[in-house]
Nucleic acid binder design. Sequence first.
DNA 1: GAAACTCGCCAAAGCGCTTTGGATATCGGC
DNA 2: GCCGATATCCAAAGCGCTTTGGCGAGTTTC
Lengths: 301, 301
Amino acid sequence: MNLKELSQNLGLSQTTVSRALNGYPEVSPATRKRVEEAAKRHNYRPSNRAKGLATGKALTIGHVIPVSSKHEMVNPIFGDFIAGAGETYARSGYEMILTIVDDAKEADVYEGLKARRAVDGVVVHGPRLNDPRIPLLHELELPFVVHGRSSGCTLPYSWLDVNNRQSFESATSYLCDLGHRRIGLVNGLEDMDFAQRRRDGYLTALKAHEIAPDPALMRSNEMTEVHGFNSAREMLASDTPPTAFICASMICALGVRRAIEDVGLTMGRDVSVVTHDDALSYLQNGDETPIFTAVRSSVRE
Amino acid sequence: MNLKELSQNLGLSQTTVSRALNGYPEVSPATRKRVEEAAKRHNYRPSNRAKGLATGKALTIGHVIPVSSKHEMVNPIFGDFIAGAGETYARSGYEMILTIVDDAKEADVYEGLKARRAVDGVVVHGPRLNDPRIPLLHELELPFVVHGRSSGCTLPYSWLDVNNRQSFESATSYLCDLGHRRIGLVNGLEDMDFAQRRRDGYLTALKAHEIAPDPALMRSNEMTEVHGFNSAREMLASDTPPTAFICASMICALGVRRAIEDVGLTMGRDVSVVTHDDALSYLQNGDETPIFTAVRSSVRE
DNA sequence: GAAACTCGCCAAAGCGCTTTGGATATCGGC
DNA sequence: GCCGATATCCAAAGCGCTTTGGCGAGTTTC
């Protein structure tokens, strides 16, 4: 059922039917009602494609997810982020198109989205320090919002982020106040902007407590369970092991926990762990009793 | 840059340019070359939208991810699945549109995709027993492929699946052969088809080893860490606790491990754990030394 | 050397919408 | 009873492509 059929069916012009359905005023209330009922009855829904052609709008937002060519890892928070975004799109009649791409070919993807007029705008995921995508998108004049921020970028841009610095500063201070002097940081890859900010927060808190940062206590890598395990394992093997850890994600923290127990210690008694909790649906921080002390922010919300 | 401009630019008709670019034979090699070079030079890419309107094809595949209204959980394997699918779409010039929807409203989404002619076909995720989406999609005449299967469904359909039954039968047999008589099953929700098959495999192996299944040793729920923890915790608290566990996912297994250690036992010495490993990039089964004994299949591949 | 093809190209219609620029009818107001 | 608003509606153009139906010019065929 398309506009033409529907309008013939009603004995009206396409113009009138289109206007009735889109809330324009040049239609009598009675006609509008008749049109709306017929549309519902015939399960008519305008073709997004034709609508887009006619209006120049795509009614579509692009999400391009970079995958590091080195690690091939898809950050698990994307699932939750996408779920949250999708709810909003569904309510607003927008479509979401997803592209997963090796980060080396990302520029090409943005150019393609623009040239094909496939989207009205994009969401930039996983911003790095001074991320080249921001100038690129400016140049392409493709509207965008960054999930996170990009330190060092001089161009203006819209972003949505949590306060990573403050969050890690609080967490670190909390541990310092408890008397910890050697605190291991199990961070994400440091070219990721969020990781940089988290480290800054960590360092700020150490400084405030007059603790000299020790490079041996700061590890960064893709936030996998294995990274958490390996990092903690190595730090714990040192002559002066940390008495506490701060982790960039629950997944890392699980690895840290495994390392702690692997060397015969008990988490929470011998070694403290604080983690950042993205509130992922499948990886809740315990039930009534949390597994980890955590700073939390729901990616999905 | 659109077709019209490009063809004027070349002093050719739109017809010829279109044909040159799409590999039709009615174009001389010299002209084709000239067109292709101009297209590249001007970074011309046909609008998917217009192309779709003209051809009736959408050049787009829909993925609709059901989210249980009760649990609001996004299965973490979707991220990896989507990444794998996206690679193929990118190579073939297809677009992927993603819809995340409360499973109660799923029918509406499929109808919408069909009525709006937004996609050429869809991938059905998370099939349940006798899944109503299969008859629905048949009725809508919307082509689809199911990731997994739907037992009890009498209609024909295309699917892609791993051998869940065989996999869990092998894993269970392996444990039985090691002498285990009480094996806990930490399964996914049992209205999910894969969970049913996994349980079947588990039961088949028990039967082959003349072990009577004990309902107290079979738990099923959303595959979260907490589910693994709670299930194992309760089973271990029994008078006749299991000596081994079989888990439906790495995430569950991590919870099971936590429960085991929580009661003062050691995994691998006091209690054995075998898990299904979806080979998620961020949740590898250890480095050189695996964390868990596992049956594995890469979702992404 | 004429009939019959084949090649290489083009004009125009059409895909399903929106939107511009009227057209017609109705209605006060004086 | 006429004029200018106002309220409703419509025909047609246009969005950027593909595809149908043709049309000359060159090539075979016999």
